[in-house]
Amino acid sequence: MKIEKSTRTDSKKLTELTIRSKSHWDYSMQQIEKWRDDLTVSEDYIIEKEVYKLIDSKDKIIGYYSYFKIDEVNVKLENLFVEPKFIGYGYGKMLMNDFIERIRKTRTEKIILDSDPNAENFYAKNGFKVVGKLKTSIEGRFLPIMELKIKPVANNVYKK
């Protein structure tokens, strides 16, 4: 297994993985279709954002994450998805660890994300705290807004 920067040619595979992974949480196909634009990882998205994929020894994509800088000290984790058949085997943690280590090498002080309610526990286990909620298009459904503060240490290296 290795994690590397995604390229534009990964667009279709990442989109399909995202839809499969989101569908894992028993959302209806009708709901998934309503979200299709939000779940699409376009070539432009890959060029504009930081997108990293986890691939196996046969170069098959197992999962990915994407993020962008809000400003000099804040980063937004926009996506972290794993193939459904690999959920629960530590690949999400592997992606999260890679992401946090990558962020520690920057001036970032805080990571922000809008979590799917089904993923809230995963992020909480990784140190994120709920700081608010975001209303969604589904009646009575809210996304937890979560954050993780990164504390600076000597030599521009950051720690949780």
Results as ranks from 00 to 15, higher is better:
I150Q: 04
I47W: 02
T106G: 00
L80K: 03
E139R: 12
G127W: 02
Y67L: 12
E147I: 04
L77Y: 01
T7L: 13
K135G: 07
S42N: 01
T108N: 06
V75P: 06
D26I: 09
S23H: 00
G63V: 02
K76A: 07
G88H: 08
K69F: 14
K105I: 00
Q31W: 11
V131H: 03
H24T: 08
A154P: 01
K34I: 03
Y67E: 08
M94S: 06
E78Q: 14
K85P: 03
I61W: 02
E120H: 08
Y45L: 14
T15S: 10
L80W: 01
W25V: 10
I145T: 09
Y27V: 03
F81M: 02
V82W: 04
R104T: 06
I100G: 00
K135S: 11
Y27I: 03
E120L: 05
Y158I: 04
L134I: 12
I103T: 07
Y64R: 00
V157N: 11
I19C: 07
I100P: 00
N121F: 14
G90Y: 05
D56G: 10
F128H: 06
T136C: 10
I70T: 13
E33V: 02
S21Q: 04
V153Q: 10
N121T: 14
Y64F: 15
S21R: 06
A119R: 07
Y52W: 15
K34L: 13
G140Y: 09
K60Q: 14
K58N: 15
K13V: 08
P117H: 07
G88A: 10
P117A: 06
K34T: 08
D26L: 13
E48P: 00
S137F: 12
E101K: 15
F99K: 03
T108R: 04
K5Y: 05
S23G: 10
K125C: 13
T18Q: 06
K58S: 15
E33N: 12
G63H: 05
P117Q: 06
L134T: 08
K2A: 03
I61C: 12
